[in-house]
Amino acid sequence: ETAKISRFLDLFRNKAGITDFVQVKSVNHVPTAAGLASSASAFAALAGAMNHATGLNMDLETLSTYARRGSGSATRSLFGGFVEWQKGTSSEDSMAVPVDDASWDIGMVIIAVNKSAKKISSRVGMKQTVETSPFYPAWVASAEEDLLAIKDAIKARDFEKVGQITEHSAMKMHGSMLGAETPIIYFEPDSIKAIHAVRALREQGILCYVTMDAGPNVKVLCRLSEAGKIKEMLREYFSEEQLLISGPGQGIRPLTAQEAAEYNWQL
């Protein structure tokens, strides 16, 4: 981890023409390495901190090309709301651009099935999938179509369509990993239970959809105004400690002095 972070810091040191040592302190509000985007948030925060500390003051789109070198998903995490990661043609133009501020009653209920670090990291799992799964090319091809479709749905603020595309895309990703040699299985029994619970809610007329990263934990995309009700209904299957409501993120920002003091940090 130290070597990985040092290489990441060097991207900024080399750009700024400095060799200063850096002390990194980080706190996660979600379990680390459990498929809940802890690496995305961590490297987005670290990119923002280095951008400020080195005086480079790059705009967020340019900064996203650096954040990507730490974690692909960190590219998008610099911004709030819905964000597109444009694959580009090189490290210079593979960047994130904001799509929509997501200020239209959209949220998520996180079901923490297993808070432990997963045995196969996202990076290792994807590498194995790319190299050995015959389903991978089809997933990539369909992802191009899904991206265009979901951008149209977001623009129209069509929550049902956004949810359908999101759920289908997540299942296709896991399907491609199941086709790897040896199959990569992130699902746990409670992951399956969560998926069936969400389908049961839909059958009752509550619009909510499943999405999963490379890990066992399940995210339920829903209207933020219904998140509390959905959480209560999910308590039939999961404990209070396993359920967390989240609205759209706001993107990176500096800590306030009061927030830093909570961690005994000095700004």
Rank of each mutant, 00 (worst) to 15 (best):
I185Y: 10
L148R: 06
R202I: 04
C208F: 02
S176Y: 11
V113K: 06
I110A: 11
L207K: 04
R199T: 05
R199D: 14
H196T: 04
A156K: 08
D152I: 02
T129N: 02
E167D: 14
R199E: 11
G125A: 08
V130C: 07
T166S: 12
D100P: 03
V198L: 11
A197W: 01
F135G: 00
L178Q: 15
K127N: 12
F159V: 05
A102S: 03
H174S: 13
R123E: 09
K115Y: 00
G163L: 10
K127A: 14
I106W: 04
D146F: 06
N114A: 11
I206A: 09
A200H: 12
K118G: 04
A200I: 05
H168S: 11
K172Q: 15
K155P: 00
Q164L: 08
H168G: 05
V198M: 08
I110G: 00
L207W: 05
V130M: 15
A143F: 15
A194P: 05
S191C: 12
R199V: 09
D100G: 05
Q204N: 12
K193I: 13
W104L: 04
I150P: 00
V130R: 02
M126N: 03
E160R: 06
D105K: 03
T166E: 05
D101T: 06
M171N: 15
R199C: 07
A200S: 11
M108E: 08
I195D: 01
K193M: 14
D190M: 13
E181A: 07
G205S: 10
M177K: 09
V140S: 09
L201K: 01
P137M: 06
V97E: 06
I111Y: 01
A143T: 14
P137T: 13
D152V: 07
W104Y: 07
M173I: 13
M173C: 13
G107Q: 10
K172Y: 14
D101C: 08
W139V: 05
A200Q: 06
A141E: 15
V130I: 12
F135P: 00
M171S: 15
V124T: 10
I120F: 03
T166A: 07
M108V: 12
E167S: 13
A149N: 13
N114T: 09
E181D: 06
S191W: 00
K151V: 04
M177C: 15
S116V: 05
P189V: 15
